[in-house]
Amino acid sequence: MKNFIKNLLVLLQLFSLFLASILFFILKISFYFPIYKSFYLKNNLAHKLGVSNEQLLNYTENLFAYLKNNTSLDSSWFTNKDILHMVDVRNLYLISSKIMYLLFFIFIILTISNIFIFKKNYLKIISKLFNRLLAIFMLLIFSLALYISINFTKFWISFHEILFSNDLWLLDPAESNLIKMFPENFFFFLVASIVISLIIYFVLLIILKKILSKKYANKL
């Protein structure tokens, strides 16, 4: 029972780190402005929408500021249904941010406490559980990447059905400027960027772990 509790503490420590990292990449990449600017220019989107590049970027900045709870949406550009849907998106963003910070806090607290609890056995225990939990996360991410590559539309619909309790996300492409700004191929690129970044991140964690294992081999 004692070993079970100790292993559970380390698993919670690692789980907090991995999940917080995933949320970090999702939130940071989703707000990485150059991605939007590049997509607009590549697809000549401003011209298609009948606005200037500067105006389109301003609408995007307005959207970012709104999601961060810093301003209201421009009702002269976004439709009523756009705005209603973005209320749900903002709530999701704010909750996700709080969860991310909480998980990082839990990771730090558990790391400090586990070092004192395990002392000399800490590196050995965390090394063993690190490999197992990371393998699970990597499997999930690769499975997600495969699912997205096979049928992104189905993934995107399922994503909305799971996270939103209403149908406000079903916007009319003929009326919604939000849909016109962010068509499906944009979200495919955004999600793919997040998944690829996470794969690189976890691979780097594996490399870092191997380097540390060699350096502290006599302690493991």
Rank of each mutant, 00 (worst) to 15 (best):
55 Q>H: 13
187 F>R: 06
24 F>K: 04
153 T>Q: 15
163 L>R: 02
50 G>D: 07
219 K>I: 15
5 I>E: 03
60 T>P: 13
26 I>E: 10
160 H>V: 05
118 F>W: 13
16 S>T: 02
157 I>Y: 13
148 I>W: 07
57 L>N: 12
162 I>F: 15
80 N>K: 05
100 M>E: 15
126 I>Q: 08
90 R>E: 03
2 K>F: 07
48 K>H: 12
17 L>V: 03
180 K>W: 12
30 S>K: 04
156 W>Q: 03
85 H>R: 01
155 F>W: 06
78 F>S: 03
85 H>L: 00
148 I>T: 11
96 S>Y: 00
200 I>D: 10
33 F>C: 06
51 V>N: 08
38 S>I: 15
101 Y>S: 11
205 L>C: 14
17 L>C: 09
15 F>C: 08
73 L>W: 01
160 H>L: 02
89 V>C: 01
100 M>D: 10
171 L>N: 11
89 V>E: 01
195 V>C: 03
157 I>G: 03
80 N>R: 02
18 F>Y: 13
39 F>T: 08
98 K>Q: 09
24 F>H: 01
197 S>C: 08
40 Y>A: 08
16 S>K: 06
7 N>T: 00
118 F>E: 09
40 Y>L: 04
219 K>W: 13
139 L>T: 13
33 F>G: 11
71 T>A: 11
125 I>T: 08
190 L>E: 11
140 L>W: 07
40 Y>V: 12
216 Y>F: 15
172 D>W: 04
163 L>H: 08
61 E>M: 15
194 I>K: 02
62 N>W: 00
111 T>G: 15
172 D>M: 09
37 K>C: 01
205 L>S: 04
134 L>A: 02
66 Y>P: 13
93 Y>I: 14
18 F>N: 09
68 K>P: 04
12 L>V: 09
82 D>N: 03
30 S>P: 00
105 F>K: 08
39 F>N: 12
61 E>I: 15
202 F>W: 07
188 F>W: 10
170 L>S: 05
40 Y>D: 13
47 H>Q: 15
77 W>D: 00
4 F>L: 04
91 N>R: 05
73 L>T: 11
150 I>E: 10
14 L>N: 05
151 N>Y: 05
195 V>K: 01
131 N>F: 02
189 F>I: 14
168 L>D: 07
71 T>G: 00
29 I>D: 01
86 M>C: 01
38 S>Q: 14
37 K>V: 08
71 T>H: 05
105 F>Y: 13
213 S>Q: 14
219 K>D: 14
83 I>A: 02
220 L>P: 00
108 I>D: 12
56 L>F: 03
52 S>C: 10
14 L>V: 02
64 F>C: 09
96 S>T: 14
103 L>H: 11
45 L>E: 08
207 I>Q: 06
19 L>N: 12
119 K>C: 10
169 W>R: 01
127 S>R: 00
158 S>E: 08
50 G>W: 08
13 Q>K: 13
129 L>N: 03
48 K>S: 14
60 T>M: 00
215 K>C: 09
66 Y>H: 06
80 N>M: 04
83 I>R: 06
34 P>D: 05
196 I>G: 00
54 E>H: 08
138 M>G: 01
51 V>D: 05
44 N>W: 06
186 F>G: 06
37 K>M: 07
65 A>I: 05
124 K>L: 01
214 K>L: 14
193 S>V: 01
146 L>G: 09
20 A>S: 12
190 L>H: 04
36 Y>L: 02
21 S>G: 01
33 F>Q: 13
217 A>L: 05
49 L>N: 11
